[in-house]
């Protein structure tokens, strides 16, 4: 059954086949497969590397983004703060302006008020003065005149010596009598009374002349070149006027003081 020549030929054939397949098939296919494997591995490694790189870059970008966001936030905060400050400033400015304006207005008002009060005072005193004047005028009679003379004599007695001496010097001689001015006519006993008193207090050589001057209201006076001795109801009235003026001034000051304290209170608020 076995043909040994065929066996030998087949062995040879098979060995040739093995050699041919090794060269043409296995080596080539395996090298191609290895090559592919290597390439895929390379590609995977490359992909891995790129992925890592991408991850790193992404991380970097994320950090940058975070930083930017933070910066943005900071800037926003700063802007907000600045705006708030600006707002406060503007509000304060506006408030100041309003305050200034109000102060000015209040000052004006106060001034007007003071002026009004002052005027009122003046008018009141004038009225009082006028009323008193009128009253005194109306009341002027003999009795009052006598009383006035008594008062003048009293003043004369109380007058200072050097004033009396000056007046004496001034009236020595007949050309220059000592003029007694009065608001009413001094005659008779009243005139004698005064003349006697002058002679007693000044000098017996002095001539005494009497002059009536209605604008003196109710009063008697002896006038020298620089000094005079006088009694006036006007004096009292003037004092009254001054006093009432003073009272009004006080009222005004009080009022302005109250205004000031009120303002300070508001400012502190």
């Amino acid at each position: 059954m076995i043909d040994w020549f065929t066996v030998a030929a087949q062995i040879f054939n098979f060995l040739v086949l093995v050699a041919l397949l090794k060269y043409f098939l296995y080596d080539r296919i395996i090298s191609a497969m290895d090559e592919r494997e290597r390439k895929i591995k390379d590609r995977l490694e490359d992909a891995d590397r790129k992925k890592q790189e991408a991850g790193r870059e992404a991380e970097e970008y994320r950090q940058q983004k975070e930083k930017l966001e933070e910066q943005q936030k900071e800037l926003f905060e700063k802007a907000k703060q600045e705006a708030e400050e600006k707002r406060k400033e503007l509000v304060a400015e506006a408030r100041n302006e309003v305050r200034e304006k109000r102060r000015g207005w209040e000052k004006g008002l106060q001034k007007e008020k003071n002026e009004f009060l002052r005027q009122l005072g003046r008018m009141a005193t004038e009225e009082v003065y006028a009323a008193a004047r009128r009253t005194l005028k109306d009341l002027a009679d003999a009795d009052l005149e006598e009383k006035s003379v008594d008062a003048f004599l009293h003043v004369l007695e109380k007058s200072k010596k050097e004033v009396r001496e000056e007046l004496t010097r001034f009236a020595s001689g007949k050309d220059r009598p000592l003029v007694v001015r009065s608001s009413f006519d001094i005659t008779g006993t009243l005139a004698q009374k005064i003349t006697r008193k002058i002679h007693q207090l000044f000098s017996k050589d002095i001539d005494v002349d009497y002059k009536t001057e209605p604008e003196l209201l109710l009063g008697i006076e002896i006038k020298g070149p620089s000094r005079k001795i006088a009694w006036h109801a006007d004096d009292y009235l003037e004092r009254l006027q001054q006093e009432s003026q003073k009272v009004f001034e006080e009222i005004i000051q009080e009022e302005s003081g109250r205004q000031k304290s009120k303002k300070e209170e508001e400012d502190s608020k």
């Binding site: 030929a9 087949q10 054939n13 043409f24 296919i29 191609a32 592919r36 390439k39």
Partner: peptide
């Protein structure tokens, strides 16, 4: 036997040769 073996060998080798001529990696 020998002739058909050659035939099979030729088939296999030529087939392998043709396919592996331009392999792609």
């Amino acid at each position: 036997t020998i002739v058909f073996t050659w035939g099979v060998m030729a088939l296999v080798v030529i087939g392998a040769l043709l396919i592996t001529r331009n392999l792609s990696s």
